[in-house]
Design a protein around this nucleic acid. Sequence first.
DNA 1: ATGCCTGCAAAGGATTTGCACCCTA
DNA 2: TAGGGTGCAAATCCTTTGCAGGCAT
Lengths: 165, 165
Amino acid sequence: MAQRVPVASIQQYSQEHLREVLNTAGRRLTPQREKVLSLFQNLGPGHHLTADDVHHHLKQSGKKVSLATVYRSLKLLVDIRLLDEGEWQEGLHCYELRQGGSKAHHHMVCMRCGHTEEFISEVITAASRDVSQVTGFELTEVRLILRGICRRCRQRSKATAEALL
Amino acid sequence: MAQRVPVASIQQYSQEHLREVLNTAGRRLTPQREKVLSLFQNLGPGHHLTADDVHHHLKQSGKKVSLATVYRSLKLLVDIRLLDEGEWQEGLHCYELRQGGSKAHHHMVCMRCGHTEEFISEVITAASRDVSQVTGFELTEVRLILRGICRRCRQRSKATAEALL
DNA sequence: ATGCCTGCAAAGGATTTGCACCCTA
DNA sequence: TAGGGTGCAAATCCTTTGCAGGCAT
C-alpha cells in the first residue's frame, strides 16, 4: 500500500500544478477555480459531486462561486485531468477527484441507496487492454460500472421481510 | 454459437411478449409502442439511437409518433427490459435492443468518429462477479465502456500526418 | 494594460408534464 | 365504458452563452 500523503501537501502540489498548467495554456488561476478544486481535495477521493452539489457546498462554506462558473471550472478541471466526470447514477453527471496514478478504478453503485464503492481490478484492466489490442483500438479510458444492491440494503430488506412474517 | 433466429420470429415473439407484459401490468399495447419497438428490431441489434433519432426515423418512414410519446415508450421498453439505455457518447442518451440472453456485452466507443463496437468478455464478467461477491453486493448489471480511437481513425490520422511531411 | 474570467440573466437543448381527446382491453 | 395513452404545447431541469465589468499576469 502506498503511504498516505498529508492533505496539505496534495493541495499545495495541485495548486501549483494547476497554476502551471493553466498559465502554460495562457489561462489563469483564479480564486474560484481554486475553491472548486479545494472542495474536492478537502472531501478527499471517492466523493462524487454534481455541479449543483459543488455550488451548494461552496455556498455553505461562505465561498460564493456562481453556478455558471462552477460548470466552467469543472469542465476545465476535467480537461486538465485533475477531476474525472461520469454518470454513475442514471441521469446524474458527477465529478470526482482524479486518483493519483494511472490506476483505472471502477465503480459499484447501489441502485437503492445510491452508495458508490470503488475498486481496482488488474484482471479487468488487462482484459480491456487485450480486447483493444485485438481490435486495433487505441485505449484511452476504461470505465466499468457495476450496478446492483449493496450489502447494507440487502440486509435491510431482508430484515424488513422477516418483520412482516 | 446459437443459431440465428429469423427476424420475423423475433418480432413476432416480442410483439406478443410486449402485449402480454403490458396487459399483465394493466397497461396497453398501442400502435405507437409497436412502432418504436419495431424500429429497433428492423435495424437489428447493435444500433444505438437517441430519442430524437427514433423520432426522426419514424417520421421518415411515414410513421408519426410524437416526440413525447417516443420518450414515454422508450422508458417503458427499458422498464420491460426490451431495450437498454446508456450514455456511451458523452452527453448522448441512447437506446439499443436488449440482447437476447444474459450475456453482458460491452462497448468500445471511438471518441473521434463515435463508432461503437460491441464485445463480450467472459473474463470481465467473471471478475465482476467475483468483486461483487467479496463485497456482498448483489450484482444486477455490468456496464463496461472502453473509450479511445478506433483503428480506422488511427489509420486516417497516420495518413494525414504522412501527407504533411 | 491586456484579455482571460466572473456573475448575471437569458438562451438552449433535452426531457417531462398538464390537459383534452382518443382508443385499447 | 373505463381509464390508460396520445399529441400538443407549456413547463422543467440542466447546462451553456452573451455581455459588461473585474482581475490575474
